[in-house]
Simulated assay, not measured.
Amino acid sequence: MILRQFLRASPVAASYLFGCGGRAAGAVVDPVDDIGAYLRMAEETGMRIRYVIDTHLHADHVSAGRELAEAAGASYVLFAEANAAFPFHGVRDGDVLELGNVTIHVLHTPGHTPEHISLPVTDRTRTDEPWFVLTGHTLMVGDLGRTELAANAEDGARVLFRSVQRLKALPDYLEALPGAYSGSVCGRSLSGKPSSTIGFEKRHNKAFRIEDEEAFVRAMAADLPPPPAQAAEIRAVNSGFKEAAE
């Protein structure tokens, strides 16, 4: 298994290159900004990028996913029911993407946005159990993703509550690798530490700990920070319904 984390400060975002070194097969998740960084790292680690995956249609930054997929000759992946104006490789809950000895499992975890997916990843040279889960903006270190960017806050929170139960059912030891960290406008109490475990977040993440649905909805709808600037326009760009500003 090869895994590299890319941390961006403006916009605040975390993205990932990982895959099977033995089979030279890799994937990139939630790329942003200069695609050259991912192409260079893939070359340095001896991997061909086969999949470029966006966990969701972002509202806080313009994705580099389609550009990177075209440059790398890779498939651009979104949840199958994502509302997008361009062709993409659609995946559904329970699907598996193969990267040699590495497998990517698809969990549909809506709430932050309707099309959001999380990705438990397994290295079969070590075990058939997942090693880490890429959680995008559903579960971040210290908080959960805001729920009003693609729905109203209460409806989004009810959907997110069900997604949270699925993430809580994952093994406690599993590393949680989010798509954002402190400074992102997509959460409220985010840590500057850009990784955690499911078990640690179950014990110390206030929003993730809430077991009652009504209490959860109230908490997620309260004290919302200002939304990302031009959030609707950015989602429209990422979904292909609007051209990016020059």
Rank of each mutant, 00 (worst) to 15 (best):
K242D: 07
R162N: 09
L57G: 13
E115Q: 09
R23C: 15
F132R: 00
G240Y: 06
A244M: 05
L167P: 02
N205F: 08
E129V: 04
A9E: 15
G22N: 13
H89Y: 13
G26R: 10
F208G: 10
D172M: 04
V96L: 10
V96Y: 07
T109C: 14
S196Y: 03
E233F: 05
F200Q: 15
A85F: 11
A219I: 00
D33Q: 10
A153H: 03
A176D: 12
Y173H: 06
L119T: 06
E213R: 10
Y38R: 03
A169G: 03
F161W: 05
H105P: 01
L78W: 10
G192T: 11
V52H: 02
D93E: 14
L167R: 00
F79N: 14
L160C: 05
F18V: 13
A222M: 05
D212K: 03
S195E: 14
F86Y: 14
A222W: 02
E43N: 14
E233H: 02
T127H: 11
R146P: 00
R8W: 15
R166A: 07
F200K: 15
E243T: 07
L167F: 01
P114D: 08
A169P: 00
K202D: 03
Y38N: 05
T127L: 06
T109E: 07
M220G: 04
A219F: 09
E211T: 14
L160V: 05
A14W: 11
R66A: 10
H105R: 06
R50E: 15
V28W: 13
K242F: 03
D128E: 10
T103G: 09
S196L: 03
R209H: 10
G142A: 01
I53D: 05
G100E: 12
V62I: 13
V52M: 01
F208N: 12
S163C: 02
G46Y: 06
E233I: 00
A169R: 10
A80V: 09
G73T: 08
K202F: 10
E214S: 07
R235H: 04
A219D: 11
V102W: 02
F241V: 01
L170G: 13
A14V: 15
T138W: 01
H89P: 00
T135Q: 00
S10R: 12
T55M: 14
D34Y: 02
A231V: 11
T109M: 05
P110K: 01
F241H: 12
G179S: 05
E67D: 09
G46F: 04
V106M: 02
R146T: 08
G36P: 06
S118V: 08
S118H: 02
F18M: 12
P114F: 04
A71W: 02
F241P: 01
M47Q: 13
E243V: 07
S184A: 08
M41N: 15
